[in-house]
Design a protein around this nucleic acid. Structure first.
Length: 568
RNA sequence: UGGGGGAUAGUUUAGCGGUAAAACUCCCGGCUCUGACCCGGGCAUCCUUGGUUCGAAUCCAGGUCCCCCAGCCA
């Protein structure tokens, strides 16, 4: 029985319907056959970095499936490695999951909540002869493990008596040995073709302070030992993870079978998300932050949820993107254009329209009375009258976009050029009469005339113009800083040649310090995107100061002219 | 014959024996007070070879290519 409405707020018809991929097919079958009573999933991040686009896919999948099947999804921190994990990340992860639109209710857990239970399970394994304490040093252990094509060798400690292992394991816990001195290993099969079954390490000695358990422990369970058992303790029915854990599944199942756990969860794997011009590995993202190559985890160019949010992308757009991408088992790299399309499609129906001039060019209307201004009315949304209107000041001195003027225009250039008439949106038709240049020959202003009969934007004689330009009256244009972003990397597959940082795009940030915006934009709420007509979607940045707003370009509008002009 | 997994338009997916569908991208055109939105149209040797079948992307057999695994990371 599916609810099938998890992404009901997806904005575009034709979007992938929630509920049809191989994971959901499995869950459906398990529900139909009664293998499970209720559906319980979990999102299990390790708190060693910020959540990113890839996690969004996992979050939407895990929380989405749970919701659709009337079950629940736990948020569980996989905090088994205190040397890498921090409270900062624990906090940011919760904020980001909530922002994405999901709620774990009372079900917030940590693998560290189960340390005592996991320890008992470990002793159980030892007593059953299924695990042993190994004193082999790391390098020697690596040599004994064999290679992909050659079997490994049994450790000399593999036959250690149960009582001795038990005693040693207890003393490991008591902190009697230094880091790396011994480990607890499962006794499975050193000749297995699956490396994960060659007596995997279950516990290692780590004299490290844990964000939650402090100094209570000197030993910590590995991912393999903690994850499945945590799933079992929480009665997770479907433990969904990415493809690289596929060959851990036999170990996952082995542990579940050999331990007196309260339930038998199953693991399913799907292909992780990859996006062109983007890097989604914690290692690389951490490096970008640590080396100061971006302003922080929430730099709007970062693929982190914090960065995406700051850039102005609504959570609904992210959910829509994930839904469009789908879930499968084949390795894939999604075109970042698909993400941008989802953002536009989400924002277009609702984002209020405003005008902003990114690179101002003065325009003087010669036949407009000096010192006079008037108020015009502009619609806030072209397709939605309910969005209302706002007043716009018109006057003799205006600003238009530098890109909207060419002294020697190519054939298909519809905008302003000497002698050409265009419309100023919601204003008047104006004709360029004269180009004013400075000593260096740079165009500094345009002298134009306007048609007083065209108030509102149309001439009584019905004549047409090819272009409508956005503009601002000098009298009330407000200064603003506008930050334009492009891909952080300059090739679709950063790092393909080995060095990710070498592929950083040096021009990913373009700060326009002298932009102008409508007065109505001065009190725009941070993070809420508006459309600057003809240029894109923008959102106020937290760096904004009173009287000095800062806007981030969330995503540009589709720009057909740019393609035409590029072709020459 | 180390183990595990995957191949459907440029990209991501659907298709589950009945004659390839959608979204994104790209190209052509229409509409337009945003060159936006919107609306038409175009873009597939279903990895390959053979087999089963009236009929195969779907089933079978062989081959090819790609991805993951040798942390006391997750």
């Amino acid at each position: 029985m599916t609810a099938g409405a998890a992404n009901a707020d997806a904005t575009k018809a034709g979007a992938a319907e929630a509920g049809r991929d191989f994971i959901r097919d499995i869950v459906q079958a398990d529900v139909d056959t009664g293998r499970v009573r209720g559906v319980v999933t979990r999102f299990p991040p390790e708190p060693n970095g910020f959540l990113h686009l890839g996690h969004a896919k996992s979050i939407c999948l895990n929380f989405g499936v749970a919701k659709e099947f009337g079950g629940r999804c736990h948020l569980r921190f996989d905090d088994t490695n205190p040397v890498k994990e921090e409270q900062l990340f624990i906090d940011s992860i919760q904020r980001d999951v909530r922002w994405l639109g999901f709620d774990w209710g009372e079900h917030l857990y940590h693998a560290s909540d189960y340390f005592e239970q996991l320890y008992d399970y470990a002793e159980h394994l030892i007593r059953a002869g299924n695990a042993y304490v190994d004193d082999t040093p790391p390098e020697a252990m690596r040599a004994q493990r064999g290679t992909l094509t050659e079997p490994g060798q049994n450790s000399p400690f593999r036959t250690r008596p149960v009582e001795e292992s038990l005693d040693l394991f207890r003393r490991m816990r008591a902190g009697e040995f230094p880091n790396g001195a011994r480990v607890l290993r499962a006794k499975i099969d050193m000749a297995s073709g699956n490396m994960n079954l060659r007596d995997p390490v279950l516990y290692r000695i780590l004299h490290a302070r844990h964000p939650r358990t402090g100094d209570a422990w000197a030993i910590y369970p590995t991912y393999d030992f903690a994850h499945g058992q945590s799933d079992a303790i929480e009665h997770i029915t479907h433990s969904i993870c990415t493809l690289e854990f596929e060959d851990h599944r036999p170990l996952y199942d082995w542990l579940i079978e050999n331990l007196p756990v309260p339930s038998t969860p199953h693991q399913y794997e799907f292909a992780r998300l990859n996006v062109t011009y983007t890097v989604l590995s914690k290692r690389h993202l951490t490096k970008l932050v640590a080396d100061g190559l971006v302003s922080g985890w929430d730099d709007p160019r970062m693929p982190t949820l914090a960065g995406i949010r700051r850039r102005g992308v609504p959570a609904a757009a992210l959910r829509e993107f994930v839904a469009r991408v789908g879930v499968a088992r084949a390795y894939s790299v999604v075109d970042v254009a698909m993400f941008e399309a989802a953002i536009r499609d989400t924002l277009n129906p609702t984002a209020p329209r405003r005008m902003a001039v990114l690179r101002p060019l003065k325009l003087i209307i010669e036949n407009y009375p000096e010192g006079q201004t008037e108020t015009l009315e502009a619609r806030n949304h072209p397709d939605n009258p309910d969005a209302g209107t706002r007043p716009l000041t018109f006057g003799r001195e205006l600003y238009v976009e530098q890109d909207d003027f060419m002294e020697h225009p190519p054939k298909k250039f519809f905008r302003l050029s000497p002698g050409k008439e265009v419309r100023l949106r919601w204003g008047y038709l104006v004709t360029c009469r004269e180009v004013v240049k400075d000593a260096a020959g740079t165009v500094v202003a345009l002298r134009c005339t306007y048609d007083p009969e065209s108030r509102g934007g149309n001439a009584p004689d019905g004549r047409k113009v090819q272009a409508t330009l956005h503009w601002l009256a000098a009298a009330d244009a407000k200064p603003a800083e506008i930050r334009l972003y492009s891909h952080l990397f300059n090739r679709p597959d950063p790092g393909a040649d080995g060095d990710v940082l070498a592929d950083l795009n040096p021009d990913s940030l373009d700060v326009l310090a002298d932009a102008l915006v409508e007065p109505a934009l001065l009190d725009a709420p941070v993070g809420e995107a508006v459309q600057f007509e003809r240029t894109g979607y923008f959102a106020p940045d937290p760096d904004s100061q009173p009287g000095r707003p800062v806007f981030n370009r969330t995503v540009g509008l589709r720009d057909t002219w740019a393609k035409v002009s590029a072709k020459g």
